[in-house]
Design a protein around this nucleic acid. Structure first.
Lengths: 188, 188
DNA sequence: CCGTATCCAATAAGATACTG
DNA sequence: CAGTATCTTATTGGATACGG
């Protein structure tokens, strides 16, 4: 399931997956990708030249698991044992935005914010109380936030100061964006 | 997750769980229940006298997993490898009704049908294009269907003849009820 | 860089016997 | 009936070395 999650925002290379799933060894990742391919959830594809590199991508059916994984995340965050300060991947934090958007606060907000984690760039776009997340280019956002996913989570969900992150462009917009999200109340 | 699923329609005893999860051994079930209790998903409770028997029930938070499990079921049924003739428990078939209700067909239907699997009785109630499933008494339904869960699935999802099931009460209603459900199209 | 193959250690699960 | 305890086997995963 974690491999699928990492593919939900677009195709990835073997080593990208490995570095975002730090606890997985090469042989296990190979095996998982095989299994997912056999079951019709993942497709291997060769990028056209000049890239000519092999990537793994979720099939259409695989992508249909996205809402499930999002809602599982929201449900699991209510666990008494949930700890939002644990390390997480770039895809995880971006997907968490779609799970944790506070509808009330989002009403009064519109705009796009880009995130860069290492080489990967994602853009989150909020309008009409809804959010959309996708891979993108830095310039697609009015602001660009650079930092570790874990630090973004610390700011958004842990109340850590904005200074943890490097922000370019519309800093005010970025600040407001980062306060649109709330964890659901814990069970118990 | 399978243990949780079995608790979604109400508290069960240790041996009920064991017989509905036929591949689980006693020690593993003990361990699972411990784990689920530690995580706040399951509660042990002693039924008041004269029953005075111990049961396991899902906590409120545990019950919030019900829609997730339902949608996982619906999603998984699209697997090219999915086989609807495999054995399943009473809870499973009842939950599948909530996942597979065909909104169009359900529009023109209203009524309650009871199912008895061994000692357990469940009632499904359809009205206004929606379905509700719960534990109940046979007399809560205008019809009572008795049979193996697997045979119910064979009729509903496999096009097997009604004769596989024993039906008491309003047989016509039961027949129409059993045709309200369709599996989602397979992926691929 | 993208894996595959091999080997070993840790874990999980099945069977079975037993107890309050 | 409702588990617990013990033992054994099977599976999984980590580490590592290697090949296209």
């Amino acid at each position: 399931m974690l491999v699928m999650r990492e593919l939900l925002l677009g195709a990835r290379r073997f080593s990208d997956l490995r570095s975002d799933l730090p606890a997985i060894s090469a042989n296990v990742l190979t095996q998982r990708l095989q299994e997912l391919e056999n079951r019709g959830l993942v497709r291997r594809r060769k990028l056209p030249p000049p890239a000519s590199v092999q990537v793994y991508e979720a099939t259409e059916w695989g992508l249909e698991a996205a809402p499930l994984i999002r809602e599982m995340g929201r449900w699991a965050a209510r666990s008494p044992l949930h700890d939002p300060t644990l390390p997480l991947s770039g895809v995880s934090i971006m997907l968490s935005f779609t799970a944790m958007l506070d509808a009330g606060r989002a009403k009064g907000f519109a705009g796009a914010v880009a995130f860069r984690f290492g080489e990967m760039v994602y853009v989150a776009q909020v309008a009409n109380g809804a959010i959309q997340v996708a891979r993108g280019e830095p310039e697609y956002g009015a602001a660009l936030i650079v930092g570790e996913p874990t630090n973004v989570a610390a700011v958004v969900y842990g109340g850590a100061p904005l200074e943890l992150l490097q922000i370019e462009g519309d800093r005010a917009l970025a600040g407001r964006f980062l306060s649109l999200f709330t964890l659901p109340p814990k069970a118990n």
